[in-house]
């Protein structure tokens, strides 16, 4: 077993919410500069898994984790403080959640909290992040306006820009388009296409089309286990397990 196969190496991961066994024996490698999509019926543990990767579950009382999760060969659960990890592994949530601050403040927040004070550098960072998230043209004249005045799709791209501003290595997205209309969804999908040149992306989605369109690898979750994991094309065209094909073709889930 080599630790350098990819960005994340997950081995024998088990997760319990108090006594509920939510993830069972997860093993997966997430490669660098690739899009991995996680699919599976509701409640199967996709969100739980993605939150393991940036230790978001630390906040939940009674949540215990066993097994190893390595990022670039280092155990992410060894450090006491998760801040460092989270600045390397960004996250975009299902519902757009910009802070109740100005657009500029939203993007600059993370770097500021990490200690960046230089106004000029912050300005540059805000602009480049908004560019990368393909929203600069829409907001460049209203950076001082409240981020809550943006549309849902714009807010979600702002949240992506906020994650990008930390210059992360991995971006986790938990159903980032489920609250958006088709046009906003398309924009985000295009964005993911370009972002994968620079970042590893893990995306949870309920849309088979979306998974097929944008991801390189796909993992199919069922009842807390990864039932099948492989290149997206193979999973969709030639699934090994019957449950996978049933789910993909919409027979359950």
């Amino acid at each position: 077993m080599s630790n350098n196969e990819g960005k994340f190496t997950v081995r024998n991961l088990d997760l319990y919410y108090s006594d509920f066994h939510a993830l069972k024996g997860i093993n997966i490698d997430i490669a660098d500069k690739e899009v991995l999509s996680l699919i599976g019926p509701s409640g199967c543990g996709k969100s739980t898994f993605i939150r393991v990767l940036n230790r978001m579950n630390d906040l939940i009382e009674g949540c215990t984790i066993t097994g190893t999760v390595l990022l670039d060969g280092e155990d992410i659960y060894k450090a006491k403080d998760a801040s460092e990890l989270r600045s390397r592994v960004g996250m975009v949530f299902q519902k757009p959640n910009p802070f109740p601050m100005s657009i500029w403040e939203n993007i600059a927040y993370g770097p500021k909290m990490a200690g960046l004070r230089d106004r000029k550098k912050l300005n540059e960072l805000v602009e480049s992040s908004l560019h990368k998230a393909a929203i600069w043209d829409e907001v460049k004249d209203r950076l001082k306006k409240s981020a809550l005045s943006l549309s849902g799709g714009q807010q979600q791209r702002l949240c992506i820009a906020r994650a990008i501003a930390m210059e992360p290595e991995v971006i986790l997205m938990d159903e980032p388009t489920s609250a958006l209309d088709p046009i906003a969804t398309k924009k985000i999908e295009e964005l993911v296409e370009t972002l994968k040149n620079d970042y590893s992306i893990v995306i949870v989605t309920h849309s088979m089309n979306q998974a097929a369109r944008i991801s390189d690898k796909t993992a199919f979750f069922l009842l807390g286990e990864i039932l099948e994991f492989g290149p997206t094309a193979r999973i969709f065209q030639n699934p090994e397990r019957k449950e996978t094909s049933d789910y993909i073709t919409g027979r359950f889930g």
Binding site: M56, S83, E84, G90, N97, R162, A165
Partner: peptide, 15 residues
């Protein structure tokens, strides 16, 4: 205050 704002803040590495 919505949990989502706390999560958003923690997710960009804030303490």
């Amino acid at each position: 205050v919505p949990r989502s704002w706390r999560e958003a803040s923690l997710a960009v590495g804030a303490s």
